[in-house]
């Protein structure tokens, strides 16, 4: 595999080339060339309906692109299946909280760890054999401040806690590239701050690509920002660059008069 790695593979962990998704004539994602630099926190912003979530679903193979290619770690993953992509280290979260509601918080995290044991098809073994994973699962719960609620069934957790649990579960996969779909959506302010800190912490040794609406979050933690509008990239760069771009201001405010900061 190493022989086929193009020179950019080290610098950019993920790249899309001319990525396009058409829904019966409607271009949801149009010819997007995006490069995600290894180790960065890269934010994807844009008004509602800009195609951010569709783009995410394309990256993680939940949708099949009409045209274009997705290169992950120098390898073309366009024809691969979603679970394959996840196993390769590109793990996503979902816009609405994605926990396993009838499993406990501990079991939720353990599901992500369990595959490593190679016993996931063993229907004759007792689940007590999964106990060896509990220590690691508790560590991850500790990280998101959920250790005290390890035994609680996920459906009973409040919303903010569910999102935290989801992040812990995602981190359990030890992904190289973390895709977060609106991680702070619908959260109270103190939860937003906690999750922001958590993302920053998680990004210490991995790359993060996130869709996010909250400009305060984006401006504080994102290294690079890409702005999508009607399925197309209209700007890309640091917050300072992007927030002065007249096209971006136009897209958000309908006029180029105001600073982007006030958009949210």
């Amino acid at each position: 595999m190493a022989a086929t790695v193009p020179p950019t593979a080290d610098e950019y962990i993920l790249e899309t080339r001319g990525l396009t998704k058409e829904f019966s004539g409607f271009l949801a994602v149009s010819n997007v060339d995006l490069k995600v630099r290894r180790g960065h926190i890269h934010a994807l912003i844009g008004p509602n309906g800009a195609g951010k979530t569709t783009f995410f679903n394309l990256l993680t193979k939940f949708l099949i692109p009409t045209r274009g290619a997705i290169i992950y770690r120098g390898r073309d993953i366009t024809p691969e299946k979603p679970a394959q992509v996840a196993r390769a280290g590109m793990v996503r979260s979902f816009q609405l909280s994605a926990v396993f509601p009838h499993l406990t918080a501990l079991e939720n995290v353990r599901i992500a760890l369990q595959r490593a044991l190679g016993t996931t098809f063993h229907f004759w073994r007792h689940q007590a054999t999964l106990g060896v994973l509990d220590a690691r699962a508790r560590e991850l719960l500790e990280l998101v401040d959920l250790a005290a609620l390890a035994g609680v069934v996920a459906v009973e957790l409040p919303y903010g806690r569910k999102r935290a649990l989801e992040i812990a579960t995602t981190l359990a996969m030890d992904p190289e590239l973390l895709l977060l779909d609106e991680p702070t959506q619908g959260m109270a302010q103190e939860d937003v701050e906690r999750v922001t800190a958590l993302i920053r912490q998680a990004a210490a040794n991995r790359t993060v690509l996130m869709v996010e609406h909250n400009m305060r979050v984006v401006s504080t933690i994102a290294d690079t920002i890409t702005v999508l509008q009607r399925g197309q990239i209209i700007a890309s760069g640091s917050y300072a660059e992007v927030s002065r771009n007249p096209q971006v201001l136009e897209a958000y405010m309908g006029s180029a008069d105001t600073e982007l900061e006030n958009a949210h």
Partner: peptide
């Protein structure tokens, strides 16, 4: 036993949330 096995855990996870199980690397159809 099946329900309380490592397999049972995965099965319940798939029952609860298929896309999430996929995103954690499980080939759910198997």
């Amino acid at each position: 036993r099946v329900v309380h096995s490592p397999f049972g855990q995965v099965l319940k996870a798939i029952r609860d949330n298929e896309p999430r199980a996929i995103s954690l690397g499980y080939e759910i159809n198997r």
